[in-house]
Design a binder for these strands. Structure first.
Length: 564
RNA sequence: UGGGGGAUCGUCUAGCGGUAGGACUACGGACUCUGACUCCGUCUGCCGAGGUUCGAAUCCUCGUCCCCCAGCCA
């Protein structure tokens, strides 16, 4: 794998780090962390955070920990931690031995909570969830203090111990920080620190029945790991006050700081865990790794490379303004990467038979084709040519518009690496009038693709020799939603109503040049003039070829045809 | 009507008192045995109004609009 670029554009976080370093903070260390909750699969938005956190560590010669924020057993699962590790690794990042879990800190967290209780900074509340909500007040009105707020330290200690011991049912009590029920920041109105959950945890089993909340856990985990810059997304800006409050009460040796950046939004897709889960559980897609999904596993299955995703994350930048990135940029970075590396092949997706009348019946000749014009080292290969070939249906028009310069009756075009051919006759199915075959002639003098007399031809078509062609299934993927913003508010509709009905088209009668018969699962190819295609890692096999279209080539003819 | 944040080309994003730059997109053109790639070129931008200054995207004032917060989710 190529070395990951260490130089990337500046951003406000780097400026903060530069200042910290100049001021000699944190013993000149830079320590970040990527802290996913294992309750879903990672998506392209997480890739932004991963590239940011690991990228910063690399650039400043620091460290980036992988830490699972696993404080809510009812939503989390090992399946997710495994997929997350696989995805981070696949993206090209290495957390070495620094694989941590918030659940590893449960004991420390518990003892720190006892300290808060002893300091009079936390108390056990016995209000119900509904009552707590009522007591919290509103955005404009202060809250009211719980009648349990002034329990004695001894009573709090006793109750908290019994909470841990499993004496109470879920919801019976919670541990709360004692801050200020009138605070304008609602998060500081005595936030919940611990709740009772008699649920087995995917790592700690039934060892615990009380679990710490995010705000309490995250900052302490950062401090335990001596993180210097704790980077999260904008919606946590309000939480920073609580992050700081907890750390200030505890006075731990390390004092991390939280900074927030804008999460990634992409048009024509959704990036919320809830919606992604819904797409999977309602079978709107085939799974988390459906090639239409914006998940890392989906992108991987689609044929995106780690390099292209990293480049994308670098190009979008890091800032504090909410924004929606055009998916065209993602498509650009994958084309850019694959153009350099993908071997070119010829494949006919929607075959139209062409018989070359003046070509000998059983002659088969091998023509030399360039494997990758962008990479001379990729060499050449031999492609068989014969009397009967297939071309793309859309490469022929009986009555072409002015700007169309592919094959048409009486017109001459070039078959790539082969000969010039001229269309002499169109054969139709008498039953329905559909074109079923073309009768053409070739010019033997144009072998290899050039005319000795110097005459030019407007178009070059890809083709496959019929007798040697190998069959394949090709899946044409397109954007999952028809609206740039699937969440746009429309009366009586949800994002599910905007799923693109044509986001997947399966073609079962594709004809590929014989070299593709050996295509190994997981390999990328450019099918000339069509796009980049990925031999499906799970389903492609020697006897049954299956390709996923990653992205089309840019197609200026499509634009002309559409705009008239 | 509380608090916390944010506004720069169509879209992302630089800029840190001294010529508003880059990328993507779009549109022209050159090249071409991929209507690809590449290369040239063009279009469009500082949320608004005042103020400070020789000079303001940047500093000040007042507005406007957008986002986040009332989980025992993260």
């Amino acid at each position: 794998m190529a070395e990951i670029e260490t130089k990337s554009p500046s951003n406000f976080i780097k400026m903060i780090i530069d200042e910290d370093l100049k001021a000699g903070k944190n013993e000149s260390r830079v320590a970040t962390r990527f802290p996913p909750e294992p309750n879903g699969y990672l998506h392209i938005g997480h890739a932004k955070s991963i590239c940011l956190n690991f990228g910063l560590a690399k650039e400043y010669e620091g460290t980036c920990n992988l830490r699972f924020d696993d404080t809510n057993p009812v939503k989390e699962d090992v399946e997710y931690v495994e997929s997350i590790k696989e995805d981070v690794r696949w993206l090209g990042f290495d957390w070495e031995a620094r694989e941590y879990y918030a659940s590893d800190y449960f004991e420390q967290l518990y003892h720190l909570a006892i300290r808060l209780i002893k300091d009079g900074k936390a108390y056990v509340d016995s209000l119900s969830a509904d009552e707590i909500r009522e007591f919290r007040g509103t955005l404009t009105e202060p809250g009211k203090e719980s009648p349990y707020r002034n329990r004695s330290v001894e009573e709090n200690l006793d109750l908290f111990q019994r909470m841990r011991d499993g004496e109470f049912e879920d919801g019976r009590h919670v541990l709360r920080a004692k801050i200020d029920m009138a605070h304008p920041n609602l998060l500081l109105r005595d936030p919940t620190l611990y709740r009772i959950r008699k649920t087995a945890h995917h790592r700690t089993g039934d060892q615990w029945c009380i679990y710490p909340m995010y705000d309490y856990t995250h900052c302490i985990s950062d401090a335990i790991e001596c993180i210097t810059h704790s980077i999260c997304t904008l919606e946590f800006e309000n939480n920073r006050a609580l992050y700081d409050w907890v750390l200030e009460q505890l006075g731990l040796p390390c004092r991390p700081r939280q900074y927030e950046f804008a999460r990634l939004n992409l048009n024509y897709t959704v990036l919320s865990k809830r919606k992604l889960i819904q797409l999977v559980t309602e079978n709107r897609v085939s799974g988390w790794d459906d090639p239409r999904m914006p998940t890392i596993s989906g992108l991987r299955r689609r044929g995106f490379t780690p390099e292209s995703i990293r480049t994308f994350c670098e190009r979008i930048g890091v800032a504090k303004a909410n924004s929606i990135v055009d998916i065209a940029l993602l498509e650009h970075t994958i084309r850019e990467d694959l153009n350099k590396s993908a071997p070119r092949m010829m494949a006919v997706l929607r075959p139209l038979k062409v018989v070359i009348e003046n070509y000998p019946e059983d002659k088969v000749e091998l023509l030399e084709a360039v494997n990758n014009p962008e990479d001379p080292a990729a060499g050449t290969r031999q492609v068989p040519f014969s009397r009967e070939i297939y071309i793309e249906q859309e490469d022929f028009m009986e009555d072409p518009p002015k700007k169309y310069f592919r094959l048409a009756p009486g017109r001459e075009v070039r078959l790539r690496y082969a000969y010039f051919i001229t269309c002499k006759e169109v054969i139709k199915d008498p039953a329905n009038g559909r074109i079923v075959e073309l009768r053409c002639t070739y010019d033997p003098a144009t072998r290899g693709g050039d005319a000795p007399d110097g005459r030019k031809v407007k178009a070059t078509l890809h083709w496959v020799s019929a007798a040697q062609a190998v069959g394949a299934q090709v899946r044409l993927y397109d954007r999952l939603f028809v609206k740039p913003d699937p969440d746009e508010k429309v009366e009586g509709k949800t994002f599910l109503d905007f799923i693109n009905p044509n986001s997947l088209e399966v073609l079962n009668d594709c004809k590929l040049e014989p070299a593709l018969a050996q295509a190994a699962p997981g390999r990328m190819f450019q099918f000339e003039r069509l796009g980049y295609f990925f031999a499906d890692p799970k389903e492609c096999a020697a006897g049954r070829l299956v390709f996923n279209r990653t992205v089309t080539l840019k197609d200026s003819w499509a634009r002309i045809a559409q705009n008239g």
